[in-house]
Amino acid sequence: MKITPELVEHVALLSRLELTEEQKAQFSRELSKIFEYVEQLGEVDVSGVEPTAHPLPQKNKFRPDEVVPGLANETALANAPETEDVYFKVPQVL
């Protein structure tokens, strides 16, 4: 399928990526070519085939529900771009 610059804009918004007009045109070209290639999956008959989300069988594993030390507040904040008091600080949300 053709990935138009408008569709790129929509997907970029969903992806939280700010793009320049030039990038929108470039990604439109590149993604169109990639999606044209993956169209080949259309020819595969998958009727009655179950999807594979995980390559090998997984079963739930339980562990004892015990309290173990977590990250100290200052450790958790050590990589933060901006902090205030004991909190992560971000720009206006609403």
Partner: peptide, 17 residues
């Protein structure tokens, strides 16, 4: 950009950030 790693400077609201 909220908890760790790079954050763009000078953004006005969280979506822009």
């Amino acid at each position: 950009g909220a908890q760790y790693g790079f954050r763009a400077a000078g953004t006005k609201n969280i979506i822009e950030m």
